[in-house]
């Protein structure tokens, strides 16, 4: 080997090259982990962590089954004048309307009882008594997008326009969809809870073809639960959802 060709290749140069290569490999490893996380193949919450969190939540509630049942009944009776769901059953369509009716009556500053009575007096056709939500009563009428985007809700209960909730806590909503909803003026849970499925679908389709496959049917109900700070029921509901869709 011709040593004269290495006369400029000193120990310092070699060390610098090696250090640079080490840093490069370090960054490559971090980049690989980041990409795997983005692809969902890495850094997921382990089942053990989820189990520990569930145990912590269970430890927070009373261990006595009777006390648990009382707590559940008490939590569901906070806003109720309808028969509340007592057990941990998953919310179905009739319960969904009950929740919507509760929230809307709160937002309008009215009691659910009044809404219930009003719906009974207004409805000319026989309808289920639990559907006090007006849009549910007039289900045959097509939803009006402009009306749903700007609902006539009392500003006393609605949060400020500047109030921004983390919509990503809802199953099926990621950062891009959250940004899209924010641009559409939906920044809070209470606002999202006033939307209907068709309006949200129209917003998604207007956002681009990449959002067309998303199904926003469950988002208003999830937002209702989040607006009520009913995180436990929200988690139970989300466990039964697959990417925000009803199972």
């Amino acid at each position: 080997m011709n040593e004269t060709t290495h006369s400029a290749y000193t120990f310092g140069t070699a060390s610098l090259e090696i250090a640079l290569m080490l840093i490069g490999c370090f960054l490559l490893g971090a980049l690989l982990c980041y990409l795997l996380k983005k692809m969902g193949l890495c850094c997921k919450k382990s089942t053990k962590t989820v189990v520990l969190e569930q145990e912590a939540q269970e430890a927070a509630v009373p261990t006595d089954p009777v006390a648990q049942m009382r707590a559940r009944i008490g939590s569901s009776q906070q806003t109720v004048s309808y028969p509340p769901p007592i057990s941990t059953q998953m919310p179905r369509l009739d319960q969904e309307t009950t929740y919507e009716a509760d929230l809307r009556s709160l937002l309008k500053g009215r009691t659910s009882e009044q809404d219930h009575l009003d719906s009974q007096t207004r409805s000319t056709t026989p309808s289920p008594p639990a559907t006090a939500f007006p849009s549910r009563v007039t289900a045959s009428a097509p939803p009006k997008a402009t009306q749903a985007v700007e609902p006539s809700i009392s500003p006393i209960v609605l949060p400020d326009e500047d109030h921004v909730d983390d919509l990503k806590k809802l199953e099926g909503i990621g950062s891009k969809i959250e940004k899209l909803l924010n641009e559409a003026g939906i920044k809070s849970y209470a606002k999202l809870a006033t939307m209907d499925r068709d309006t949200l679908k129209a917003i998604l389709e207007a956002g681009g073809s990449q959002f067309k496959l998303h199904e926003p049917k469950s988002w208003p109900y999830q937002a209702e639960l989040a607006a009520k700070q009913n995180w436990q029921r929200l988690k139970e509901y989300q466990d039964f959802l697959i990417s925000g869709r009803n199972p």
């Binding site: 290569m21 080490l22 490999c25 490893g29 971090a30 850094c43």
Partner: peptide
């Protein structure tokens, strides 16, 4: 050198993993 680079790669991966 290959061993050092491999260790650096693993360290970088672990760094990102633990941070996440």
């Amino acid at each position: 050198l290959a061993i050092m680079l491999g260790v650096a790669f693993i360290l970088g991966f672990l760094f990102c993993y633990l941070q996440n």
